[in-house]
């Protein structure tokens, strides 16, 4: 018997399904469900369109900020390293190297709420409640002296806040302000009044990365070889550790994404906001060269703390409870399995 009738039936069903939702010329795709649109349609416009119901104060936000934001942005939103400064900078926009912060530069409050809610904290985006985002937004405004410490920010009060640099922007006017860059004929001869002289050289500054990739690779291979040589005698005395389960290691690599913003591992790993973590499992605490530890960590190191899987696990579960005063502002890993996995992953780096 021919397959033809079956095919017809199949096509008819498909057409029916596709045909129910769609009016477009190609009849492709399907109608988005309201729940789906709600899940992704999070952006907030300057007039407050899209703001969720909720509220918070700087007071509520202070601890949250310290836990989730301060590692990069500083306890007072003053910025750490090259991470963005969120507060201050008023009156600097017309100077060299202006300090552009939420307070000094951002024209719309909606942008602050929208960005924090959708994209922060770095490495754990979209994990905070709407109220928490109001509280954090209030804290950032407070640190810019735009709101009071106990003033409530909510979807109701949102439009009352005035951003200091709201009038600091103009729409692209290049075609008028730079109309002289359009020319009938570019100059070809005697284009300058005086003989041309060099006025500045890049080599004076000397900020260009020097090494070629090949040289870097060779250098790090050499360094690795040296490391191996130096560590070789120690290895003999070390207790052989069981090889970690590859599946667990792989899972741990995924978990480590939460840590990557501050910690580096692997070849050439360097200290960042947090210390590089090569060889951390089984090694003494507070001992990574060149990293400035908190007093709490230095004290623990002096007392002989070693990052055994057990100690490290306890630290990672609730860093600030385990060690009061640690600089690590990570909130902690709730899942026991995740803790095991990330330790297994870390144990693969010598």
């Amino acid at each position: 018997m021919s397959k033809f009738p079956k095919l017809i039936a199949g096509t008819a069903v498909a057409t029916l399904i596709a045909g129910t939702a769609l009016a477009g010329p190609f009849g492709l795709g399907r109608e988005a469900l309201p729940e789906e649109v709600a899940a992704w349609n999070l952006d907030i416009a300057p007039d407050g369109t899209g703001l969720p119901e909720g509220s918070g104060t700087a007071e509520d936000g202070e601890m949250l900020f310290s836990e989730s934001c301060a590692a990069c942005h500083g306890e007072f939103a003053e910025g750490v390293g090259r991470w963005p400064v969120l507060a201050g900078g008023f009156g600097t926009l017309d100077r060299m190297d202006p300090v552009k912060t939420v307070g000094s530069y951002w024209p719309y409050l909606s942008t602050v709420y929208d960005y924090v809610r959708r994209s922060m904290p770095f490495g754990a985006a979209q994990t905070m409640s709407d109220d928490d985002v109001y509280a954090l937004t209030a804290y950032i405004l407070y640190s810019n002296s735009i709101m009071e410490y106990d003033e409530v920010l909510s979807n109701e009060t949102f439009s009352e806040i005035e951003m200091p640099n709201a009038d600091g922007f103009i729409v692209d006017n290049r075609e008028e302000a730079e109309a002289h860059f359009w020319k009938d004929e570019p100059c070809m001869e005697n284009c300058k009044d005086a003989p041309v002289e060099i006025t500045m050289r890049a080599t004076i500054l000397d900020v260009t990365p020097e090494e070629t990739a090949a040289e870097e690779a060779a250098a790090s291979e050499e360094a690795a070889a040296e490391d191996t040589a130096a560590e070789a005698p120690a290895e003999e005395t070390e207790v052989a550790m069981a090889e970690p389960d590859p599946a667990l290691v792989e899972e741990g690599e995924g978990v480590f994404r939460k840590c990557k913003a501050c910690h580096k591992v692997g070849e050439g790993a360097r200290n960042g906001t947090g210390p590089a973590l090569n060889g951390i499992v089984g090694h003494p605490a507070g001992a990574v060269e060149g990293f400035r530890y908190s007093n709490a960590m230095q004290d623990a190191a002096a007392d002989g703390l070693v990052w055994t899987p057990e100690e490290l696990g306890a630290f990672l579960a609730k860093p600030r409870d385990y060690m009061r005063g640690t600089k690590m502002s990570f909130v902690g890993l709730r899942d026991e399995e995740e803790i095991k996995a990330v330790i297994a992953y870390l144990s693969t780096f010598e």
Partner: peptide, 13 residues
């Protein structure tokens, strides 16, 4: 599709 620009972080800050 909107009736106004969103003025997100990447187009303001």
């Amino acid at each position: 599709v909107t009736d106004q620009p969103i003025e997100s972080r990447e187009e303001t800050s």
